[in-house]
């Protein structure tokens, strides 16, 4: 491998990342800031690829750029006026405060960079140890083994964080449909007809891949959520009688399954999350499948951004006669 072009790329990438971050932070137009933010995250995913962390890259692209970008855009649509999306000039800093804060931040950053020289050049992380115990973990991919077995407790609590996000959002507001009426364009319909099966298929593939290669529940769930959102954009909606207990049950299903699997241990005289050796693989797969479903719904629910009102998300369709007049 010749270092020439790649070295140039490695030098350019951080510079572009910093520039994008700065532009996004200083942009007075919020829409522009969000687009720059999405671009920043996509390039950050590239940086992870260059650091040979394909799992993180996938997660960064799917969650950092995809889900977070969508969330920010959905939040923007809730700010009604175009003027509201434009920030007024930030309050002028007093020069003394600016100099003091700037100096303090620069000093802290310099100290931090200086201390980095003490980091070992060859990281002695847990990689080798994980590889040694991979056979006992029930899966063949080290990242999945860490997430769902070795440090499964962290993941259990992280899923609780996701669930918490939905509960907090539902507590704050009711859902408002982000489209006054479903978009009816032949382009969208055609796109959906093509994309929905592909998204579903690739979500399933990513999930299956997770047991032996980069992929897994979170990445699959964000693809599935993308599919659900596309369907929502073109007017699909959850039947009203499903938006109560059934929806809540689906949202918590993955977490409950994980929790149930976790307490097999203490109930049988083992530690929390210590699966019986014969059941390791099926338990992990079951938990991962249910988690994917629940996380996809959780992500969709956060983008919708409010508790279900129990009524139809869109006003009833106008009668054909009225539609004809409009045309």
């Amino acid at each position: 491998m010749t270092p020439g072009p790649l070295l140039l790329f490695d030098l350019l990438l951080p510079a572009v990342l910093l520039w994008l971050a700065w532009r996004s932070l200083t942009s007075s137009d919020l829409f522009r800031a969000v687009i720059l933010f999405i671009a920043f995250n996509l390039l950050l995913a590239l940086a992870w690829v260059r650091l040979e962390a394909p799992d993180v890259a996938l997660a960064e692209a799917a969650i950092g750029a995809g889900v977070t970008g969508t969330l920010l855009l959905a939040a923007l649509t809730r700010i009604e006026s175009a003027a509201g999306r434009r920030l007024s000039r930030p309050a002028r800093w007093r020069p003394a405060a600016l100099v003091l804060t700037g100096t303090a931040l620069l000093a802290a950053a310099a100290g931090l960079l200086w201390s980095l020289r003490l980091l070992p050049t060859m990281p002695g992380g847990l990689g080798p140890l994980v590889d040694r115990h991979l056979a006992e973990s029930g899966v063949d991919h080290p990242v999945t083994a860490v997430l769902l077995n070795f440090r499964g407790y962290d993941t259990l609590l992280e899923v609780a964080v996701l669930l918490l996000a939905v509960i907090a959002i539902w507590c704050l507001d009711e859902a408002v449909p982000f489209l006054q009426q479903p978009l009816e364009s032949p382009l969208l319909t055609g796109f959906n007809r093509m994309m929905l099966p592909i998204l579903l298929l690739s979500a399933g593939y990513l999930l299956w891949l997770g047991s032996h290669a980069p992929g897994g529940a979170f990445q699959a769930a964000s693809l599935l959520a993308a599919g659900l959102l596309l369907a929502l954009f073109s007017g699909a909606s959850l039947p009203a009688q499903w938006s109560g207990l059934p929806l809540r049950l689906l949202l918590v299903l993955g977490f409950l399954a994980f929790l149930a699997a976790a307490i097999i241990g203490p109930l049988t005289g083992r530690a929390l999350l210590h699966y019986p050796p014969a059941w390791v693989k099926p338990l992990i797969l079951l938990v991962e499948w249910l988690l994917t479903l629940s996380i996809a719904l959780i992500l969709t629910a956060t983008v919708i951004g409010g508790r279900p009102t129990g009524s139809r998300p869109y006003p009833p369709p106008a009668s054909p006669a009225a539609e004809g007049r409009q045309r």
């Binding site: 115990h133 407790y153 962290d154 241990g265 083992r270």
Partner: peptide, 15 residues
């Protein structure tokens, strides 16, 4: 202490 998942630190998490 309790080694979660039956994995000893540093591989696993200890309570």
């Amino acid at each position: 202490t309790q080694m979660l998942g039956g994995w000893q630190a540093p591989l696993g998490i200890t309570l």
